[in-house]
Design a protein around this nucleic acid. Structure first.
Length: 212
DNA sequence: GATTGGATCGCCT
DNA sequence: GGCGATCCAATCG
């Protein structure tokens, strides 16, 4: 475990995050399934004007690109999904059901429009700020679901296209060890095509995942 | 130009 | 477990 992290107190020293290294672009520039798996156990951090919030990634989904019928890029490039067609390591944020935002990270090689959806976090720091943004729900529900974590982390559509290496939202290796037998693999949630492709990954035993 | 359905959530029963 | 909220873009005609 790296310095600056106090899991017992559920706090992180802010200056630790400012100095620590985010995951590099090369992390995201790999095949999407690998990135989705390896993002488990990493920390997602948002440096916002209101304060810093961070959570441990416990659930992700891979959206592989134009050949994946459930991926937005399968039906061509639009203004909405344009970020996915750009380089890896950038935030692809979109509005769903007319009222919720979902946060993705672009992946894979240049020219392949793929991304990983972050579906759930275990809150680590800035928990009071998260609760205020979410209007005080149970701590367990702060980041349990893609739209919930977006709200708790204070993410807006203005961050669409921002770098997750140099921008306000970043991912860090915090030395949290994920043993391979803790990783579960299951079909993706809430989609109507390719419903049996096992591209959802989550940490077994976590109380913070959206679906078991 | 109109219709339809969606990578969801919160509230209801 | 069901349903309403509410916007966007793809798919019809």
């Amino acid at each position: 475990m790296k310095p600056g992290l106090d899991f017992a107190q559920n706090t992180i020293k802010d200056d630790y995050w400012a100095r620590a290294s985010p995951l590099p672009y090369s992390f995201y520039r790999r095949d999407t399934t690998t990135v989705a798996q390896e993002l488990l156990g990493k920390a997602m951090v948002h440096f916002s004007a209101e304060g810093i919030t961070a959570g441990l990634v416990v659930e992700t989904e891979a959206y592989l690109g134009p050949h994946d019928p459930a991926c937005h890029s399968a039906r061509g490039r639009t203004e909405r999904n344009a970020v996915m067609f750009g380089p890896a390591g950038h935030a692809y944020i979109y509005l769903i059901y007319g009222m919720h935002l979902c946060f993705n990270v672009t992946t894979d090689r240049d020219g392949l429009a793929a991304a990983v959806l972050v579906r759930a976090l275990e809150p680590l720091t800035g928990i009071e700020l998260m609760a205020r943004r979410r209007r005080c729900p149970a701590p367990r529900d702060l980041c349990r679901g893609p739209a919930r974590l977006v709200q708790a982390m204070g993410i807006t559509i203005a961050l669409n296209g921002a770098s997750v290496v140099e921008g306000p939202v970043r991912f860090y290796d915090i030395g949290y060890e994920v043993h391979p037998n803790r990783v579960r693999r299951a079909p993706r949630v809430g989609i109507s095509r390719a419903t049996d492709w096992p591209l959802r990954f989550y940490l077994a035993g976590s109380a913070y995942v959206s679906h078991k």
